[in-house]
């Protein structure tokens, strides 16, 4: 029981991070119908900016932990969003309206580019970061096992919940959210009704990159190590999460992220660590076979 609870906590933490990245995939797919392959790299860049920012703060000796985290979050979100914007502007916008595979190949090219760009500039070695947030709560204690909820886990889960609420409000209530939903339904019609489609799509990429940056900061805090390759695996799983939850649906992305995180944690805990990724993809395939639109996705009608 204690073991189960501990794994559930670990799984939810991991799932929250996947969920944040998955939102970026799901929004972009919802609006322009393409798989933004470079999104995982954007998340990786967020993590690297976080490592650099934390190191600078440590050099200046800023010891106030909440302040440091806030500063790093702000810095990471700003710079990573700039990357998100640029990626869309350079690699995807010229190909909008082209045939379906063109932006996908360009996205794969962008992914290769960013991965190696970071490798060349920041080095191929793993970057270890001194733990910033330490300590935690003990929830339950039995003779042989202690269930612990570390402060960093609380931070990750709380941040994710706050961002999700904020984001749902943004989509539901603001002018930008309305514009995004309009674009999702019909790009041409939205343009005819006076929505600046280019701007809306750009902002979607910026928002997605911002969330990925937050996820990158969180993962840096959580694991304490970052390398240039983390974007690929995380991106793949986050995309799986987006598809699992129903692509185009925000709550779906979050739910999918949580499910993937839980599956991974439990599989690693009860079966084999080596095959945890296998379990993730197997579940993705099973869900797609029996519910092709994902758990919360709308069935889409194919029109002639």
């Amino acid at each position: 029981m204690e073991y189960f609870l501990q794994q559930a906590i670990n799984g939810i933490t991991l799932g929250a991070i996947y969920g944040l990245v998955a939102i970026g995939y799901t929004m972009v797919y919802g609006i322009i119908g393409m798989i933004n392959f470079a999104h995982g790299e954007i998340y990786m860049i967020g993590a690297f900016v976080a490592v650099i920012a934390f190191s600078i703060l440590a050099m200046f000796g800023i010891a106030n932990v909440p302040l440091a985290i806030l500063i790093v979050l702000a810095v990471a979100v700003i710079f990573t969003s700039a990357y998100g914007w640029t990626v869309e502007r350079i690699a995807y916008r010229p190909l909008r309206g082209s045939f379906r595979l063109a932006p996908l190949i360009s996205a794969i090219g962008m992914s290769i580019f960013l991965q190696n760009y970071v490798q060349v500039l920041q080095g191929a070695r793993v970057k270890p970061l001194q733990p910033v947030v330490t300590g935690g709560l003990t929830i339950m204690r039995s003779d042989h096992f202690t269930v612990a909820l570390s402060y960093i886990q609380i931070l990750i889960i709380l941040t994710t919940v706050v961002l999700m609420i904020g984001f749902s409000l943004l989509i539901a209530r603001t002018a930008l959210g309305r514009a995004q939903r309009a674009c999702e339904q019909d790009l041409t019609m939205a343009a005819l009704l006076g929505i600046n489609v280019d701007r809306t799509i750009s902002l979607t990429f910026v928002l997605g990159a911002g969330l990925a940056a937050v996820a990158g900061v969180m993962v840096t805090l959580y694991y304490g190590v970052v390398d240039f390759y983390i974007g690929f695996q995380a991106g793949l799983k986050a995309f799986a999460a987006a598809v699992l939850g129903g692509i185009g649906s925000l709550p779906g992305a979050m739910l999918g992220g949580l499910l993937i995180g839980l599956v991974e944690a439990f599989w690693a805990a009860y079966f084999t660590v080596e095959y945890k990724d296998l379990a993730t993809f197997a579940i993705l395939i099973l869900v797609l076979i029996f519910r092709p639109t994902g758990l919360l996705g709308r069935p889409d009608v194919e029109k002639v």
Partner: peptide, 14 residues
């Protein structure tokens, strides 16, 4: 070279 490779893929596609 892999940086250039990625960039070349994007450039050819555009």
């Amino acid at each position: 070279r892999m940086v250039l490779f990625g960039a070349a893929m994007i450039a050819i596609m555009i």
